[in-house]
C-alpha cells in the first residue's frame, strides 16, 4: 500500500475523519467499561455528568484545565517549530519552585506588584530550564527529545531535595512540603465564592497572546518557517538557531506558568505531587488542538473534563480512573491518523 496526497480534501473528509477518531475513542471507552463489568452507557453518562453535570463539576473541570492550557500552549509553540519539548513537566516545577521562593515573604511588595513579578520570574526559570537542551540541540546536535525527558526526572529529584531540605516547611509535621504562600502572593478568585482563580483568566490571555505572536508577528512567521522546512528557512536568511532559542524561551516560560498558577492559585504550597503529569498531558492537548493556540483552550477543557469525569465516575461505577489516560492516548493516536488520512488516500498496489 502507499499514500497518495490529496490537494484539496472535501469538507466531508475534513470533518468526517476527526469525527471517526472521536467515535473510536468513545468505542474504546465502552469496551473498557464492559471489561470492568460496568454498563458502557452508564459509564459514559457518569463521565459526562462528573465533568459538567453541576456548577461544582464544571468549575472543577475549568480548574483542572488551567495548567493544561499552559502546558498545551508550551507544547504547541515548540512543536510548531519542530522543537520537541517533552520537558514541560520540568519547566512547570521550575515555575512552581520560583513561586514558592519569592512568594513566602522574600519580597515586601503589595499584591498588585508581587504577583506579576513572581509570574515573570517563574517564566524566566522555566525558560532557562529549556534553554540547556535547546542549546545542546542547536550547538551540538544533541536530540532534545531525550534530554528534555531526562530533565523531567532530574527536576523532580531536585524538587524532592528542596522539599526535604532548604524549602521544607518547619511546621509541616515532617511531610515534604513547602511553607504556604503569603496572602499577597495568592491569586484571588475571579468571582468571590466560586472556586475558580485568576490563573484560568491568565491562561486564556496567554492563549490569545500566543495566537497574536503566531499570526501577527515576524517571530511567528519565522517559527512556522523553521518548523515547515529548517533548511529552506536557513536559505531564506532566517537565523534558525536563534528562532529555536526564542521559541524555547516562550515554550519554557508558558509551561512554568502552569506551575505558578497551580501553586499561587490552587494549592498555596508546593508538594511533589503538584503535577500528575500535566507536562505530558499537554502534548495530547496540543495535538488535539492541531497546535492552534485557541484550539488549545478548547482541547484542554475537553481533556480536563475527561479526567475529572473519570475520577468521579470511578468512585461511582468502580471502573479504574486510568480509563481516562487510555482514552486520551487513544484520542491522540486516532486523531493524528485521521489528520493524515484527511490529506492522503490509501492506494493498494
Amino acid at each position: 500500500m502507499r499514500l497518495e496526497p490529496i490537494a484539496n480534501p472535501s469538507p466531508a473528509r475534513r470533518l468526517g475523519l476527526p469525527a471517526a477518531a472521536l467515535a473510536l475513542t468513545v468505542l474504546m471507552a465502552s469496551l473498557l467499561a464492559l471489561l470492568a463489568g460496568a454498563n458502557p452507557f452508564a459509564t459514559l453518562g457518569l463521565i459526562v455528568k462528573g465533568a459538567a453535570g453541576s456548577k461544582y463539576a464544571l468549575l472543577e473541570t475549568l480548574n483542572r484545565a488551567t495548567p493544561l492550557i499552559f502546558t498545551g500552549l508550551a507544547v504547541a509553540v515548540a512543536f510548531r517549530a519542530k522543537l520537541w519539548n517533552i520537558g514541560a513537566e520540568a519547566q512547570l516545577y521550575a515555575g512552581a519552585v520560583v513561586t514558592v521562593l519569592l512568594g513566602t515573604g522574600a519580597l515586601p511588595l503589595p499584591s498588585a506588584l508581587l504577583i506579576p513579578v513572581i509570574a515573570l520570574a517563574a517564566m524566566i526559570a522555566g525558560a532557562l530550564v529549556l534553554l540547556g537542551p535547546v542549546l545542546l540541540k542547536t550547538r551540538l546536535g544533541v536530540d532534545e527529545v531525550v534530554t528534555t525527558l531526562l530533565f523531567n526526572f532530574i527536576m523532580l529529584l531536585f524538587v524532592s531535595l528542596l522539599l526535604e531540605g532548604p524549602m521544607k516547611d518547619p511546621m509541616g509535621m515532617g511531610w515534604p512540603k513547602s511553607p504556604a504562600l503569603e496572602k499577597a502572593a495568592r491569586l484571588p478568585r475571579i468571582v468571590e465564592g466560586l472556586r475558580l482563580h485568576w490563573g484560568f483568566a491568565l491562561a486564556i490571555l496567554s492563549a490569545l497572546a500566543v495566537w497574536v505572536i503566531q499570526t501577527r508577528t515576524t517571530l511567528g512567521y519565522e517559527i512556522r518557517a523553521v518548523g515547515l522546512n529548517a533548511e529552506a528557512a536557513r536559505f531564506a536568511g532566517i537565523p534558525v538557531g536563534r528562532v529555536m532559542v526564542k521559541t524555547a524561551l516562550l515554550s519554557g516560560g508558558l509551561a512554568a506558568l502552569a506551575g505558578f498558577s497551580e501553586v499561587a492559585g490552587l494549592k498555596g504550597n508546593l508538594t511533589l505531587d503538584l503535577s500528575p503529569g500535566f507536562g505530558y498531558t499537554g502534548i495530547i492537548v496540543a495535538m488535539l488542538a492541531l497546535l492552534n493556540p485557541l484550539g488549545v483552550v478548547v482541547a484542554a477543557i475537553f481533556v480536563a473534563g475527561v479526567f475529572v469525569g473519570a475520577d468521579s465516575m470511578s468512585r461511582a461505577a468502580g471502573v479504574p480512573t486510568y480509563i481516562a489516560d487510555i482514552l486520551m492516548a487513544t484520542a491522540l493516536l486516532t486523531m493524528v491518523l485521521a489528520l493524515r488520512l484527511t490529506h492522503a488516500r490509501i492506494r493498494w498496489r
Binding site: I326, A329, R340
Partner: peptide, 30 residues
C-alpha cells in the same frame, strides 16, 4: 502508524508510551 502511514515518530511513540503505561495501570487496578 509510523511505517505505512508515515505519521510523526515522535508523536506516535509518545502516544504508544502513554497508551501502554495507562493500559498496564488500568489492568492492574482492575
Amino acid at each position: 502508524l509510523t511505517v505505512p502511514f508515515g505519521l510523526s515518530q515522535h508523536v506516535v511513540g509518545l502516544g504508544v508510551t502513554l497508551l501502554a503505561t495507562a493500559t498496564a495501570a488500568f489492568a492492574y487496578r482492575l
